[in-house]
Design a protein around this nucleic acid. Sequence first.
DNA 1: TGTACATCAGTGAACGCGCGTTCACTGATGTAC
DNA 2: TGTACATCAGTGAACGCGCGTTCACTGATGTAC
Lengths: 220, 220
Amino acid sequence: MRWTKGDRDGGPPGPRGYHHGNLKEALLRAALELIAEKGPAGFTFADAARWAGVSPAAPYRHFRDRDELIANVARRGFELFAEALTTAWDDGKPELMQAFDRLGRAYLDFAKHQPAYYSAMFEAGVSLDTDPALRTASETAFAVLRSAAEKLVALMPSQGRPPALMVALHVWSMTHGIASLFGRGDAARRALPMPPEELLEAAMLIYLRGLGLTTGLPRG
Amino acid sequence: MRWTKGDRDGGPPGPRGYHHGNLKEALLRAALELIAEKGPAGFTFADAARWAGVSPAAPYRHFRDRDELIANVARRGFELFAEALTTAWDDGKPELMQAFDRLGRAYLDFAKHQPAYYSAMFEAGVSLDTDPALRTASETAFAVLRSAAEKLVALMPSQGRPPALMVALHVWSMTHGIASLFGRGDAARRALPMPPEELLEAAMLIYLRGLGLTTGLPRG
DNA sequence: TGTACATCAGTGAACGCGCGTTCACTGATGTAC
DNA sequence: TGTACATCAGTGAACGCGCGTTCACTGATGTAC
């Protein structure tokens, strides 16, 4: 395997003749790297081309414009996110509360270790209507939270059960709030007296107790 | 009062000779309008000058660069935010739960009706270290939440009281999460089966019950 | 009250730069026969 | 297996544009006397 361009200055490795061979992929990676470096607004279409080692006109073969590129990053982000959440939740096995704890941690983990995807998904101002696949991916991710909420609610006595959708929205909001405010290596980050994971875990324990679910979490 | 420039195309009214007289103020307003229109990344220093009706060199008399301008918007945002929260909380009078409910609503209200300030404060990537006054303003705002949390915690039996700081962080995260995900007129907004205010109120009721505080809110 | 002068805040022209986008082109790849 | 040809993906030069920033300047304001 040989490469002649694109592997200097942090650029991606890759075989390279006249045709790049995998430019679409390379541009998505470029966007990701550049978002991680300078935020979703901090890079240009030309930057992405440069990073991938191609001429500034090349990206037009794959994306209409910068927005379409970012929307693609967001879509892929939601897909990976949904995957990570699904794996962590694992249908509530072997024990519901344990799985629920894993789910929250997986959420924070994603925000922390994939900040570029997370930004593209939630902060780049990409409308979900840009692309049906984007909305679908986003809904698939939320569906995991929703299904977890359903199993939790099912533990409660049938009278006085709150709507599972609402519980899912609460969980999502709390987790997203913690991730946004404290969960990333941002410059804008705020100091915290405890790790975000513990802050979340404590919040969820209190919330679940409020729902009447008294089962403790593994390491509460 | 006469004005010769700056009142076309949405620009601010104002008397205007050779000297603007109030350019610093006008630039802050310009930034605010432009952020509201196109997001914190969607405008340039030159745009702000144009909006204020002055030459592109004029802003340099008041701000080192665009970042300093945005940091100033953020600072002022935190000041107004702190004020709004303080007023709503009103030291927990006349009744703690009622005041707590008002506090949450005031938070959501600010995010909804001052989206430009809110963006500058939380999403523009402005580091709090840019300017000591910025950090101070941000801490003053949080102090309101913290003091509310302290009064809430004080209602609990003294054994098993959670740290007030943690409770404040929970409240902040939940509210910020709801505001970010559902609370604004964004293109990126998500649909919701209920108004954000009710979602928050329900969350807080459950959370407080989890803390052992069973007093109901006025319109739970 | 008037005059001289210092200071301040905005002007407008200029610059170099990088961006987005287009275009005719060309090298590489795949396919029909 | 070889050849002709269509299609595809990237080139590189070019363009107009607006940005950030600087500069010597100038009009307005304030102040000392």
